[in-house]
Every structure is written in C-alpha cells, then in structure tokens.
C-alpha cells in the first residue's frame, strides 16, 4: 500500500509472536482505535531481534522502528528478551553517534492481554514520529553536500 503523502509515515514494528503480537491482536479484537502507520513484522521472540534489523530499516527509509516483546521474566523461551534488552539498550545509546535520531527507535514490553496498553504504545509512538516528521533521505543529504562543495 503506498504511503499516503503527508498523512501517514512508515513505521516498522517488530513484535514477538507470544506477547506483543497477541497484544496487538487483543487490541484489534476489542476494536480499539489505532493509528495505521505501523507495519508489523512478527518474530518468534524478541531474542530474534538483531539490532541490525533496526538500522537496516531506518537507513532504508523507515521513519520509525518499534520493537515490542514479552515483559522480562515472561518470555515464552525463558530468556530471549533478557538478551534482547541488552542488545536493544546498547543500540538505543549507540544511535546518536551514527547520525540517526534515537527518538525514531523505541523498544518496550506488552503482554498478550494488554490490548489497552498496546493501543497506548502505538498511539504515543506514532505521535512521536509524526512530531519528528519524515526521516532524512540520504540522497537529499548527498545533493546538499555536493552543492555546498561546489558553492
């Protein structure tokens, strides 16, 4: 589906199958109003999250990336989200030096029963991304630099 110009941004959500995907489902079944900017990628567990997924998405034109999984201690596989927490926290703090706005990335925990919380998370994150606006485009920056070098 093409992005509706100006009204919708591209947000990629990585959700774990057992909690947050279920939570999003619960929110849907309960017919909570949600923004439609988020496109979901379902993962078996947040332990599957390679921080490079986030970087790849952000460099490839995503305006925001949201990762959500089971609450710590509630992982279906016992410890997947413990590893994820360390990796994602390192990534969150690493983004500033890479020139990518760390506000465009967030991770959180939502369980399968927390439909209401899921609605809140999606709404807040989408609002945040809309405040930031579309992500900077590499080709535009390259043009700018070229112009500055010539001028």
């Amino acid at each position: 589906m093409p992005v509706m110009d100006g009204r919708e941004l591209r947000i990629v959500g990585f959700l774990c199958n057992w909690c947050s995907y279920g939570g999003a489902d619960t929110a849907g079944v309960a017919r909570f109003d949600q923004p439609t900017d988020l496109r979901i990628v379902r993962l078996p567990c947040t332990g599957r999250m390679d921080p490079l997924f986030v970087i790849k998405a952000l460099l490839s034109g995503a305006d925001g990336v949201l990762v959500s999984g089971c609450h710590p201690r509630d992982c279906h596989y016992s410890e997947g989200n413990f590893y994820a927490r360390r990796r994602l926290e390192v990534l969150k703090q690493f983004l500033p030096v890479t020139g990518i706005d760390p506000e465009r990335f967030e991770y959180t925990w939502v369980s399968a029963s927390e439909g209401q919380k899921w609605q809140e998370v999606v709404t807040k994150f989408t609002e945040r991304i809309h405040t930031l606006g579309p992500a900077p485009v590499i080709a535009d920056a390259a043009e700018r630099l070229k112009a500055a070098n010539l001028g």
């Binding site: 500033p96 030096v97 890479t98 020139g99 990518i100 706005d101 900077p136 590499i138 920056a141 390259a142 700018r144 630099l145």
Partner: peptide
Amino acid sequence: RIKAFEDTPVEERFDFWVGEMD
C-alpha cells in the same frame, strides 16, 4: 571527540556520515 560530535544537531551528524560514507 565523540562527546563533541554528539553535541552537534542530529541533522549535522547525519550529513557528516553521508559525506564520509560517500
């Protein structure tokens, strides 16, 4: 060096890396 770099606006940091990676 890193602290000084991180204090610059995010747009400048983005442009900096675009220039370097170019």
